[in-house]
Design a protein around this nucleic acid. Structure first.
Lengths: 210, 210
DNA sequence: AGATAAGTGGAGACAATCTCCGTTTTCTGA
DNA sequence: TCAGAAAACGGAGATTGTCTCCACTTATCT
């Protein structure tokens, strides 16, 4: 928000304030990467050489700081979405998007929790970007559904939340006997055998030749 | 552990110790139910009218207290497993088990987190029961796989972790646009259309007429 | 009843969050 | 260029929570 490097906004912040904000942000990114989203704010303030009050004035809550610290990764994610959107195969596009989402959710350890919280609490600083994530998921999903590549009864919300759940597990459980690929595959195909029961009263799947 | 009401163990605990343990446990169950697994231990001690030291001697960690407070629910879960095991339809049995698991994981708000942690940390007081949960999942899954009801490439670990992920989401997101049934369905069938691609190099799918 | 081992409780060390307000720094325009 | 006003700073301290330590109390055994 407030001051993008690129956007020409002159930033009404005083020079020292802008400097401090930047220091805090840089330090926060390091600490969140290193120690997860629960990194000590006190510690961040100390290392950025500002008082606690300064940190809290710039970023009134952990989530506000988190949101600011995630800006880069969000841009990266949007770029991935752009690329995925250009894939001809809508099923592959959806897969690519979900993969990118997993990457994003791994930016900081424990990130899925505040993201999930932001989905419901509409006042969260993360809320804006979260809604965007659900919307994007919706776009990819709908396109895949129109091509008969995704089940028609799945909603974007369900899919997004499931992806969040997987990300949460992987955040803590990687190398505990499972891989990201394995869980993504379960999410894609389910655990039931394909022949078990027609899951949706969907229109006859078109033959592979478009 | 230590003293089951039923098992005849005379309990080497002194009378006052046993009394205190019981008070703590009862209070803890209330607080965990009310405020989730992060309920203040200090508060629990105060309300149980014991010193902090007493609480920590009986239950050296939050997880130890949690494990003790969950004994009842675990019994209930095992009973469910018994019942599910008697179902003739192995697919339905697996579904019933996963449902019971969801119920269990909703005993206290936030429970999936320590359960997941316990899966990897082998010293956790919750570890024992967690391993049992994975084993049970395995039994149900294998049976369903033998009947061709579950995909052969899914492992119990993957399925259990996925269920944990869903439980985690539901713990916090129910009424945020999704229901438990919806997420369970996604887990069961996946998000891809059934015709998309044979998910496993499995033996030729039998024609719909069994 | 008296000895002794088991158990108690709460003071206190420590860590983290967040607020408040006296002080310092920047900005502005005369 | 230099006040004066406004903006921002920082850190002390209130608060809450976890966990330990040990002087004291209480149950148990003989």
């Amino acid at each position: 928000m407030s001051t993008d490097v690129v956007s020409g906004e002159p930033s009404r912040l005083r020079a020292d304030a802008r400097r401090n904000r930047e220091r805090i942000l840089r330090t926060a990114m390091r600490h969140f990467s290193l120690h997860g989203i629960n990194a000590s704010l006190e510690e961040i303030a100390r290392e950025a050489e500002v008082g606690a009050g300064t940190l809290y004035r710039h970023f009134p809550s952990r989530e506000a700081l988190l949101a600011a610290a995630l800006e880069d990764q969000q841009k990266e994610l949007l770029a991935c979405a752009q690329r995925a959107g250009k894939l001809a195969d809508s099923g592959a596009a959806l897969g690519a998007w979900l993969g990118a989402l997993q990457d994003y959710l791994r930016s900081f350890n424990g990130l899925p929790a505040p993201v999930l919280a932001a989905v419901k609490e509409r006042e969260s600083p993360l809320c804006l970007s979260c809604n965007a994530l659900v919307s994007l998921t919706d776009e990819f999903l709908v396109r895949a559904q129109q091509d008969g590549r995704a089940r028609a009864t799945v909603t974007a919300n369900e899919l997004f939340l499931s992806a969040l759940g997987i990300a949460w597990v992987l955040n803590r459980a990687e190398a505990c006997g499972t891989t990201r690929q394995a869980l993504e595959k379960v999410l894609a195909h389910g655990y039931l055998a394909a022949t078990d029961e027609p899951p949706a009263p969907m229109m006859t799947a078109p033959p592979p030749g478009d």
